[in-house]
């Protein structure tokens, strides 16, 4: 519930951003996933060593990792 409230507060503060103002948003370090190859590695490590997984889009093939 607190999470939903936080999202609504943040979304409530949205501004209109003109196309010519989107240069900063297009920077590599501003992408949601700035290094996809590294992200798949980290996600596989954490998913095979911890109980939690998911939350970041479609899952790929699993492994029998111990």
């Amino acid at each position: 519930m607190r999470l939903l409230f936080l999202v609504l507060v943040l979304l409530g503060g949205c501004e209109t951003v003109q196309p010519w103002e989107r240069g900063t948003l297009a920077r590599p370090e501003m992408q949601l996933d700035s290094d996809p190859l590294e992200t798949t590695l980290m996600e596989q490590v954490y998913e095979s060593k911890e109980a939690a997984s998911g939350g970041n889009g479609a899952a790929g093939a699993g492994c029998g990792c111990n």
Partner: peptide
Amino acid sequence: ISGSWTQVLNKNAVLQSGIS
């Protein structure tokens, strides 16, 4: 199944909320 909503907040900030 997973879904997400990505919102540009201003010219310097973006937020994505997701559920799976």
